[in-house]
Design a protein around this nucleic acid. Structure first.
Lengths: 207, 207
DNA sequence: AGAAGATGTTAGTCATCGTTAACACCGGGC
DNA sequence: GCCCGGTGTTAACGATGACTAACATCTTCT
């Protein structure tokens, strides 16, 4: 029987342990890839040894799936909130940038895992993650299509991916520049890159 | 005994087979990661089965090492040539952008492998690859520091990584936009992002 | 106190994989 | 015509790793 919560969420200790495991796993996956990390190592990273993890997760793939689901959910709901709360498209874009930059600077290994390891997630969860990623992208595209109405959506999607690539470069330039300065740099570059959508909107032909 | 070339390079058939294998391996590594691909699969991708690859490479890690070495060498020598041949820094940057964009659009899987799998390369080759990557980066930083002399080098390095992230987003937005338009889009965004280095050079404090 | 459940341990299993061994074919130079 | 280097085959081996089983411990509720 449940003790204090009659039918609610599991006790706090269990939740903490779970997220501790997830954090350690994410770090290791980011460093050496999903298949490059063993269950034994993940266990070791949280002080237990190997198969203890099966008390908390059904398997290695479930670990990865939960990491990616959590990340893409968090990104999407945060973006949706930011967009609806912003008074106009300009401010919405500013807020989206802030959110993505904070996340990229604060959790570089989650960023890394997020766009590297989707291929290793088994099929039921894969679709949900893909969907959330698409929704996140569409938040950006919606805002951008309001700011740059002359730009066709496929172009906006490609541009958004490019901005993600720019912002998510943080794992590569780790510690070259203090975090606050890095945030300002990334924001400035991203804004400028997006502003270029206006000028180049029709220049599809080059020599 | 060698037949036609007394001491030169190996016969053309052998070279072709080698690069055929390397191409297939790169494609597979990009799709599922180094540890996610078996020797048997790589063999299957080139019509042979499994251990035949050992006639051409000393092992799986050697495959990866050669892929990364080739890519980083190609990027670096191409960049060095472009910089020395350019009449001024402005033109040099333009040429560097062209080279990186061509490569990112033409070989997305090599781009993917290049910045994901360095950690799986064994130590002797790893250092050489790192060195080439650093040299490639420094070509950019040298040019940029001439164009933006007020910007400190660490900031330029971070900005360059950001531009790489932007340009290397091609694997994510595959086929959303025709290649020529994509090239123009990426060039415009990258140029604008770099131009922002002038304005934001001193704005390190934000609310 | 004692039963129950949660959480950990170690030992074992089964599959997969990188690598090697032993053998077959094949084409060109004596 | 025969040998030989190059290239492929299949079979085996050894290691690793995900996962399960069986057992221990500790907390907690009655």
């Amino acid at each position: 029987m449940r003790s204090v919560t009659s039918a609610g969420s599991p006790p706090r200790d269990r939740r903490r342990r779970r997220s501790e495991i997830l954090d350690a796993a994410a770090e290791l996956f980011a460093a050496r890839g999903f298949h490059g990390v063993s269950i034994e190592e993940i266990g070791g990273a949280v002080g237990t040894s190997g198969p203890a993890l099966y008390r908390h997760f059904s398997g290695k793939e479930a670990l990865l799936a939960e990491i990616l689901l959590e990340v893409s959910e968090r990104l999407h709901t945060s973006a949706a909130r930011r967009v609806t709360e912003a008074p106009d498209a300009e401010r919405a874009l500013e807020s989206l940038l802030t959110g993505q930059i904070e996340f990229a600077l604060g959790h570089p290994s989650l960023i890394t895992v997020h766009d590297r390891e989707l291929g290793n997630v088994p099929e039921p969860a894969r679709r949900r993650i893909r969907r959330l990623q698409r929704l996140y992208l569409e938040e950006w595209v919606t805002v951008l299509s309001e700011l740059y109405p002359s730009c066709p959506p496929p172009r906006l999607r490609a541009a958004t991916h490019a901005v993600f690539g720019l912002l998510n470069s943080t794992p590569h330039s780790a510690g070259e520049v203090p975090a606050r300065a890095m945030a300002g740099l990334l924001r400035g570059m991203a804004r400028a890159a997006l502003a270029a959508l206006q000028d180049t909107a029709h220049s599809q032909e080059e020599s």
